[in-house]
Design a protein around this nucleic acid. Structure first.
Length: 658
DNA sequence: CTCAGCCTTCTTTTT
DNA sequence: GAAGGCTGAG
């Protein structure tokens, strides 16, 4: 059934106009078709999207026929929860999540068309690097050439996929330093692709690439796109070429597409994001209607002045005026400090003062360019007993002990998974890198390697001392495999732990008790998943702050937030500290060497500043502690200079207590 | 040859 | 704080 939405003046069952301003209302009530919404920071972009979803549902669009692409899965969850409050639980059926999440769901259904077996495994970044290392080692054994590092090769390979550029051309253009090794890299990339196919695994980029491949087939495209009557995309400025092509194809049948973004907040260039996507959107969709959200509800005029004064220095942008409506506040503070220790002391003390004044810790955040910059601060906060949550840093699911246990589970779902095999085998005492490979190559010849290994462990391939452990491993795999269906995830984890892993933990890592406890939390968390497949796919796509869900589930205590600027996107706090605002830290030295690097760093500063509602502190350390105890003098960040010259800042001077 | 453990190195941003 | 390189032991 085909229906059309008309821009009805009648707002329906809830009073949109009471909750939305004119600009927002125009977007929410717009008719079907193609919409481009340019939404500045703090202009109610999320609210507008939520109401738009609610409006569509209210008009009778089945929620399962709406897709909402967001930047994190959490953002999607939050939006759909809020939409629920408006139109009821129906909106939970909306296809919400990241591009990778959406791709995974579609590929579970259609992946066989591309030759993938059911239960393919998703490689996280570390897995992908490991597999690349294997490919490099093979290649180099064959040619005895110079050494390549996986990390160095992974970047151009990923960039090529995401920008849809042939690898050789991309290396010539963007990685000239790799040119001497071009043919080796191409060969490694070929092996890597082949290896992933053989192991029935996909890396993050494959999820997107393969979805796009599917959409190349006209019948598949027609059927898939038929499903989505409405496609909505948030943070469109951070999509790359590959993602933009997916969006265009998914919306190609119904042609109801709404993209929302702000070119000034495009900060994912390193992942192939192109501000040109949003700047050139109207050229690809010539019937697109343009809307703008310009009224900023978040920040004081003084904070917006800082943001505007900074972004003005960028050439490549759509000029826009953010109109403040909040009452005036203090001028943001410029706080020079000696080093990161003094920086941490200042932040901690100021935070305590704000708490004294009655501000909640939940209303404060500390933002920084790179994870390691938060280390000193974490120590200081711990010393002063200020509770905090870190939205960055080592990811929970990427820690070694978590990945160890998950490797067992992955084998049950995908018995061909080389990395998991090697990881599991390597855990056995007496089996090292070489032994694990030998065992894997023996196992893979069987139709079902796991069942075969469980039935007849190849003890003859290993040294005497490894035989008992291997026998135990075979027993464990046999037990996990013995049932009709794979065990539920939580139970599988419990069995792996009981089957010898927990015992082994102290000999593998330090602080085994803490890790052991985390694994119990993991098992507990797994209870909410019914199938191993769903559990494993979710974990790899869930990423960063998932740790919070697992570990802090029952700790509602107020906390100060620590976050990278990237992770802070879309969030806001009353009080924001931006630390490490010195040249080479922010802007980061490495990023300045890339084309367009300075402008992207400036946008990053813009994002940081616009997170603050009432108070903003720009903290500038003058000395860096480099590794090896070397201390280097630092100049203040050029971005701080720019806004200070514009007269936007109040200079503070911080003294140390005797 | 294979494994384990100790040492150094150098830290961008993420699905 | 983790990953890779080097060494010594088996």
């Amino acid at each position: 059934m085909k229906y059309r939405i008309t821009a009805a003046p009648d707002p329906g069952s809830f009073r949109y106009e009471e909750h939305l301003n004119e600009e927002q209302l125009a977007v929410v009530m717009a008719g079907a078709g193609v919409l481009l919404v340019i939404a500045g920071a703090g202009t109610g972009k999320t609210r507008t999207l939520i109401y738009r979803v609610a409006r569509l549902v209210e008009l009778g669009v089945p929620p399962r026929r709406i897709s909402l692409c967001t930047f994190t899965n959490k953002a999607a969850r939050e939006m759909l929860n809020r939409a629920d409050a408006l139109v009821g639980a129906r909106s939970r059926e909306v296809w919400g999540g990241t591009f990778h999440h959406l791709a995974n769901r579609l590929l579970r259904e259609w992946g066989h068309r591309l030759g993938y077996a059911e239960g393919y495994t998703i490689l996280d970044e570390e897995d992908a690097r490991d597999l690349l290392t294997v490919c490099i080692a093979e290649r180099e054994r064959a040619s005895r050439s110079m050494m390549l590092r996986a990390a160095a090769v992974a970047a151009p390979i990923s960039m090529a996929v995401n920008t849809r550029t042939p690898l050789d051309r991309l290396i010539l253009q963007r990685y000239p330093e790799l040119c001497p090794m071009l043919s080796e890299i191409l060969e490694v990339a070929r092996r890597y692709r082949q290896r992933k196919r053989e192991n029935n695994v996909m890396d993050f980029d494959d999820l997107l690439h393969n979805l796009r491949e599917l959409l190349e087939d006209d019948t598949v495209r027609a059927e898939m796109a038929e499903r989505f009557e409405h496609v909505l995309v948030d943070e469109y400025q951070d999509t790359n070429r590959l993602q933009a092509e997916i969006v265009d194809r998914l919306a190609s049948v119904h042609r109801n597409l709404m993209v929302v973004g702000d070119d000034a907040q495009s900060i994912y260039g390193f992942r192939g994001a192109e501000p040109e996507n949003i700047l050139g959107f109207s050229e690809r969709w010539t019937d697109a209607a343009l809307y703008r959200l310009t009224i900023n509800y978040r920040s004081t005029p003084q904070i917006l002045e800082v943001a505007n004064a900074c972004i003005r220095n960028n050439r490549r942008q759509v000029p826009k005026d953010l109109q403040p409506v909040c009452p005036a506040g203090e001028r943001p503070a410029l706080v020079p400090v000696r080093d990161s220790a003094m920086e941490a002391a200042f932040v901690a003390q100021r935070v305590l003062e704000k708490v004294q004044e009655g501000q909640s810790l939940d209303q404060m955040a500390v933002l920084y360019r790179a994870h390691f910059q938060s280390m000193e601060l974490q120590l200081e906060l711990t010393r002063r007993q200020i509770p905090f949550r870190v939205r960055s840093g080592i990811r929970f699911f990427e820690q070694a002990h978590i990945k160890d246990v998950l490797a067992f589970l992955r084998l049950l779902v995908n018995p061909q998974d080389e990395l998991s095999w090697v990881r599991v085998l390597n855990l056995q005492p007496g089996v090292g890198r070489g032994g694990a490979l030998k065992l894997f190559h023996h196992a893979r010849t069987a139709a079902d390697p796991v069942a075969e290994f469980a039935a007849r462990p190849p003890l003859h391939l290993v040294a005497a001392k490894a035989r008992n452990p291997l026998q135990d491993l075979a027993g464990l795999l046999g037990r996990l495999r013995a049932r009709e269906n794979p065990p539920p995830p939580s139970q599988a984890i419990a069995e792996v732990l009981a089957g010898g892993y927990r015992e082994r933990l102290p000999s593998l890592y330090e602080n085994a008790p803490a890790r052991s406890e985390e694994l119990d939390h993991l098992a507990q968390y797994a209870e909410r998943f019914e199938s191993l497949e769903a559990f494993l796919a979710e974990l790899n796509l869930l990423a960063s702050f998932a740790a919070e869900d697992v570990l802090l589930a029952r700790q509602p205590e107020e906390r100060l937030t620590l976050s990278t600027v990237h992770q802070a996107k879309g969030l806001e706090w009353q009080t924001v500290f931006v630390i490490g605002l010195s040249e080479s830290l922010f802007p980061h030295a490495r990023s300045l060497q890339e084309p367009g690097g300075e402008e992207e760093e400036r946008r990053l500063f813009y994002v940081a500043a616009t997170r603050a509602a009432r108070e903003l502190y720009l903290v500038v350390p003058q000395v860096a502690d480099r590794p090896g105890g070397r201390r280097t003098l630092l100049r203040p960040s050029r971005f701080v200079d720019e806004v200070q010259r514009a007269g936007c800042l109040e200079r503070w001077s911080v003294e140390e207590a005797p």
